[in-house]
């Protein structure tokens, strides 16, 4: 039956076109959001450490520091240097927190899932240092 075969082919082609539309719209929307957010980013003033879902401490980015943090799976060392914050070493299982690199813009984040630590840059006016 050539007609049925032709119809099946057309259906398959329509599906392929829809797949492509889906993929392109996902990529485009995400890229657009990324670009917009990139330009909205401003330099942050402080880093906030959240442990186990609770706010633990806030440190100024201007002041170099080396902070030992203890998380659910051991320790992590947070370094503040030249207005940037990063994790130098950690005892967690995957070390992904180290790979996430340096952060200094508002909203930028380092997440350590095994240690349940979240480090976020923000702009509190007066950072209250609790340690």
């Amino acid at each position: 039956m050539p007609h049925r075969l032709y119809r099946d082919m057309q259906v398959a082609m329509n599906k392929k076109r829809n797949d492509l539309i889906l993929l392109l719209s996902i990529v485009l929307v995400t890229a657009l959001v990324l670009i917009v957010f990139h330009f909205l980013k401003t330099d942050g003033a402080t880093v906030t450490v959240t442990k186990n879902g609770e706010k633990y401490a806030t440190y100024p980015l201007m002041q170099d520091a080396e902070i030992k943090l203890s998380g659910a799976q051991g320790h992590a060392t947070l370094i503040i240097e030249d207005g940037q914050a990063y994790i130098k070493d950690a005892s967690c299982s995957d070390k992904l927190c180290i790979k996430q690199g340096k952060i200094n813009k508002n909203g930028e984040t380092i997440v350590c899932l095994p240690n349940k630590l979240v480090i976020t840059v923000n702009s509190d006016d007066d950072p209250a240092v609790i340690s």
């Binding site: 996902i26 990529v27 995400t30 890229a31 959240t50 879902g53 984040t109 997440v111 349940k116 979240v118």
Partner: peptide, 26 residues
């Protein structure tokens, strides 16, 4: 992750993860 870590900060990973999910989906 938002629920477990109690922080909306992980949302900043979402765009990269969506792109990665789409690519691996292909």
């Amino acid at each position: 992750a938002i629920f477990i870590l109690g922080s909306r900060a992980v949302l900043s990973f979402l765009p990269a993860l969506i792109i990665f999910g789409a690519v691996s989906g292909v």
